[in-house]
């Protein structure tokens, strides 16, 4: 697995120009915006998409056929991809959070506690993003994967609209149901969201393993 990780970091190095421009935008946003939290969300979310590119690099020019002839297993490949994503996202999250907190402290604009809470809230968002995107990327590849994700989100959107319409027909007020849900305190909410994110990540890894074990090259 270490060999694959080294390969993916070498390939990530090729995207240094894009990373550089993202860093410039992030830094500009953090310096110029009165609310530095938005730059933190931007940077963390955009960076969460970088590890997905490694799948596209692998399949470019039928590269997967050679890759899976090397001493790796398909399961090991999936685990490596998620580890790579987690490493990249941990580093980018830690970097962005530290930088944003330093800038906020110097500017004296945002409450540092609020920024930290915001940063903690981003972690499950990133985990869920990875969990949703990787199976699509592995199943359909780079370009088709993006189309498949857009189609899936469109489908989910249509289902939600359909549910709202159906509930209206039966005179069910969904908004009031949500309003009447028991109010959770922040830490309970965080624990629940983290649990959901990690469960989704676990399910995503399992699905990706099934996808890769069925693939032919």
């Amino acid at each position: 697995m270490k060999g694959l990780l080294v390969k993916d970091f070498k390939l990530l190095k090729l995207q240094r120009n894009s990373i550089f421009y993202i860093l410039i935008i992030f830094f500009g946003m953090a310096m110029l915006s009165s609310n530095v939290s938005s730059s933190l969300s931007f940077f963390t979310f955009v960076f969460s998409l970088f590890p997905l590119n490694s799948v596209s690099y692998d399949e470019f020019d039928n590269g997967n056929a050679f890759l899976f002839s090397l001493p790796i297993t398909r399961t090991g490949y999936v685990i490596e991809k998620y580890c790579f994503a987690l490493i990249i996202n941990s580093i980018s999250w830690a970097f962005a959070t530290t930088l944003v907190m330093v800038i906020a402290y110097l500017k004296g604009t945002n409450n540092l506690y609020d920024i930290f809470v915001m940063a903690l809230a981003l972690i499950p968002v990133v985990l869920i993003t990875i969990s949703v995107m990787f199976p699509f990327q592995l199943k359909f590849g780079g370009d088709k994967g993006r189309v498949a994700i857009i189609c899936t989100f469109g489908l989910v959107f249509l289902v939600v609209i359909a549910l709202v319409k159906i509930s209206e027909l039966f005179h069910i007020d969904i908004v009031s149901i949500f309003n009447n849900l028991p109010v959770l305190n922040l830490s309970t909410f965080f624990v629940l969201v983290y649990i959901v994110a990690f469960v989704m990540l676990f399910i995503s890894i399992k699905i990706s393993m099934i996808i890769m074990n069925k693939k032919e090259f």
Binding site: K7, K10, D61, G63, S69
Partner: peptide, 26 residues
């Protein structure tokens, strides 16, 4: 097993310098 495939290999975006640590770890 050593492999050579006619239509597949390491990513063309890598250099020999890049693949040496990859091979050392594989």
């Amino acid at each position: 097993i050593g492999i050579v495939l006619s239509d597949s290999g390491f990513s063309g975006y890598l250099t020999i310098k890049d693949i040496i640590p990859v091979l050392s770890n594989l």
